[in-house]
């Protein structure tokens, strides 16, 4: 068995974020490797969300650096992170209910018609957007949705999550971050979304998955980053540790020596 030391797609070194006297991120190291699903788990208040916000550009860290493909990057807004290929699927489903699926997929990144229609009259190329939306939804196996021009509000929670994931897969060129994608869903719908996550990985996009749901994490993750007290407590794999080990590390009941960090 050879451990291939690849360059991380996304990496942090000694990241720090303080809110007054509280240190939300305490010299955190983090690595995401190409083509993997990395789950981040941690107890409430462990600093997961702060770490995610820093990675998606929603907050700027006080110290440390973020490296994308080995190059240091500074995000001053989520838009900047997004323009560099880091897409985030938010827990509260950032979709517009009254707009249709195609409109939602391209919201904020619309395609205009070529030529004078697009440049002077700013006309949208609805046909191209619908075709590309349709193709992406089919590619991800989401075509239980009958009609690409149906309003998102007529979809179920799982289907809406599907639209949000499809959007991130359509535009994310480097990393997709998913914040609790199955939290609001039923059993069957969660299953579809988990399959969807694997589908996105099989397209070669690495995924950061934040979840409280241990069985889901252990099912889809290649590696699991366990966050505790603002720093990385351990990185394990579903094969090397059990769920109860993970919970033990998360809560501090078990210590892990630093050299057991798993590498993909």
């Amino acid at each position: 068995m050879t451990i291939t030391k690849q360059m991380p797609v996304l990496q942090t070194k000694g990241l720090v974020k303080r809110y007054g006297s509280v240190t939300a991120i305490d010299h955190t190291d983090f690595e995401l490797y190409p083509g993997e699903i990395l789950a981040i788990i941690g107890d409430n208040g462990a600093g997961k969300s702060s770490l995610i916000k820093a990675l998606s550009g929603a907050l700027s860290p006080d110290e440390g650096e973020i490296l994308l493909d080995g190059n240091p990057v500074h995000f001053s807004s989520p838009m900047e992170a997004r323009s560099l290929g880091i897409e985030t699927v938010y827990q509260n489903l950032a979709v517009s209910p009254a707009l249709n699926i195609a409109d939602n997929l391209f919201l904020g990144r619309e395609i205009r018609k070529p030529g004078i229609l697009g440049s002077v009259f700013r006309m949208l190329d609805k046909k191209t957007m619908e075709e590309r939306a349709q193709a992406k939804m089919e590619e991800l196996g989401l075509m239980t949705i009958q009609n690409i021009s149906q309003a998102v509000e007529s979809l179920s929670g799982g289907q809406r999550q599907g639209v949000a994931v499809a959007r991130s897969a359509l535009f994310g060129s480097k990393v997709v971050i998913m914040d609790e994608p199955t939290a609001a869903l039923g059993v069957k719908e969660s299953r579809r979304v988990l399959n969807l996550i694997k589908e996105v990985r099989s397209r070669g996009l690495p995924i950061i998955l934040i979840s409280h749901n241990m069985p889901h994490v252990f099912e889809v993750a290649d590696r699991i980053h366990i966050h505790r007290l603002g720093k990385r407590a351990a990185v394990i794999t579903p094969l090397s540790h059990s769920m109860s080990d993970a919970v033990a590390i998360m809560t501090g009941a078990m210590e892990v020596e630093s050299d057991t960090q798993a590498v993909s």
Binding site: P78, Y90, L93, V95, S96, P97, L99, D103, G108
Partner: peptide
């Protein structure tokens, strides 16, 4: 499209950039 999105759900519109 942005006018509709802003009126529909301003938070979602903002997250969409």
């Amino acid at each position: 499209r942005h006018v509709y999105a802003t009126g529909d759900d301003p938070a979602a519109a903002k997250l969409a950039g």
